[in-house]
Simulated scan of single mutants.
Amino acid sequence: MDGNAITAEFAERFNAPIIEEFRANGGRLGGELAETPILLLRSVGARSGATRVNPMAYLEHEGRYLVIASKAGADTNPAWYHNLKANPDVVIELGTETLRVHAEELTGPEREARYTDAANALPAMAEHQSKTRRRIPIIALTPVDRPHR
């Protein structure tokens, strides 16, 4: 499916078994995602106000969890990106741990450095950027329940 055609309904159907497996296995996934660090992002819909759960790959950097709004290289940002911009105080599930975090988009040299890290750690990210003219955002999720490392 073209990344521009991803609907909320499609994403929900695709994500549901991943979320179920994640929660049933303490944050561990099998198959193609077995080696990919995954967290569950619980955000509040920017327009609907409904709670949304999205599994996503992440990188850990200096006590923050970095997520990439690639939407598989679509020309538009994913819905969860807009949700975080409207409501940046959210919850993530990391393994069996639940953390309150504050979301902030990275900019400038920090964004560039972290995108390079992401492309090296998750090769699909470089491919996603090559599919679109938009600059793919990187969001830092900073825990508010525990001190930075």
Rank of each mutant, 00 (worst) to 15 (best):
L106Q: 04
D117Y: 07
Y81T: 02
E93P: 02
H82G: 07
E93I: 00
G95T: 03
A126F: 14
E97C: 07
Y115D: 04
Y115V: 06
A119D: 04
A113K: 13
L122T: 07
K85H: 07
T116N: 11
A124N: 14
E110N: 07
W80A: 02
E97K: 11
T98K: 13
T116C: 10
G108Q: 10
Y81Q: 02
D89S: 12
E110G: 06
A79T: 05
P109Q: 14
N83Y: 05
A119Y: 06
L84K: 02
W80R: 01
P123K: 06
V90E: 04
L94E: 02
H82Q: 10
N87Y: 07
T98L: 10
T107Y: 12
N83E: 04
H128P: 11
H102V: 06
G95Y: 00
E105G: 08
T107C: 10
P109L: 12
R100A: 12
A119S: 13
E97W: 02
L122A: 11
E110K: 12
H82V: 01
I92G: 03
T116G: 11
R114G: 09
L122D: 06
P88E: 00
Y115T: 05
K85R: 15
T98A: 13
R114H: 12
P123R: 06
E104P: 03
A121M: 12
T116V: 14
V90D: 03
N120D: 13
A121K: 09
T116Y: 11
I92K: 00
L84G: 01
T96P: 04
A119I: 08
E112P: 08
E93M: 05
K85I: 09
E127L: 15
L99V: 04
L106N: 01
L122F: 15
L122K: 04
L99S: 05
L94P: 00
R114I: 15
Y81A: 02
I92T: 02
G95R: 00
R114M: 15
A103D: 02
Y81G: 04
W80Q: 02
A86D: 07
A124P: 13
I92Y: 00
K85D: 04
A126T: 09
W80L: 04
L94D: 05
E112V: 14
L106G: 01
E97Q: 14
A86K: 08
H82R: 09
I92M: 04
N120C: 12
M125F: 15
R111I: 07
E105V: 15
G95W: 01
N87P: 01
A121G: 12
P123I: 11
G108W: 10
A79D: 08
E97L: 12
Y81I: 00
D89Q: 10
E127K: 15
R100L: 07
L99N: 03
